[in-house]
Computed example of a mutant assay.
Amino acid sequence: MILGLHHTQITIPKHREKDGKAFYCGVLGLPEIDKPDSLKSRGGFWLQVGDRQVHIGTEEGFDRTQTKAHIAYQVEDIMYWRSELKDIVTIFECVPIPGFDRFEFRDPFGNRVEMIQEK
């Protein structure tokens, strides 16, 4: 039986953790959490998002701009995020989903990200 979702992982290029933390912790305001010592040598960092985690791993040789795979962050004030991000990333409008407002962008590493708010 599957009980729920514990974490999801996205990747950034190796040796770009400083830039990753600047975007995810600085711009998005997500708190970094301790990564187990047994995994620290693999690079990357972990974030707390509500009661779940996002693991930012490192990986080379992958074109993140060519995939529809993405992470969606549920937000309270989508207009705030649209305003905060408009000068940092290119915002793309999404196909409408009844009951939700949403938009997408690519993070500085090419990962597809969605911001979504229930109406």
Score class of each variant (00 low, 15 high):
M1Y: 02
I2H: 05
I10F: 03
I12G: 02
P13H: 03
P13E: 00
D19Y: 05
G20S: 11
G20L: 12
A22H: 13
F23Q: 05
G26F: 07
G26S: 08
G29K: 03
L30P: 02
L30Q: 00
P31R: 01
I33Y: 03
D34R: 10
P36N: 04
D37Q: 13
S38D: 09
S38W: 12
W46G: 00
W46D: 02
L47Q: 03
V49Y: 00
V49H: 00
D51W: 04
V54W: 03
E59D: 10
D63K: 08
R64C: 01
T65Y: 11
Q66V: 09
K68R: 15
K68I: 14
H70C: 07
H70M: 12
Y73Q: 10
I78W: 07
M79I: 09
W81T: 06
W81C: 04
S83I: 09
L85K: 10
K86I: 05
V89F: 00
V89G: 01
I91E: 03
P98C: 00
G99F: 01
F100W: 12
F100N: 13
R102F: 04
E104W: 14
F105T: 03
R106E: 02
R112C: 07
R112W: 11
V113Y: 00
E114V: 07
E114H: 14
M115R: 04
Q117Y: 03
Q117I: 01
K119M: 15
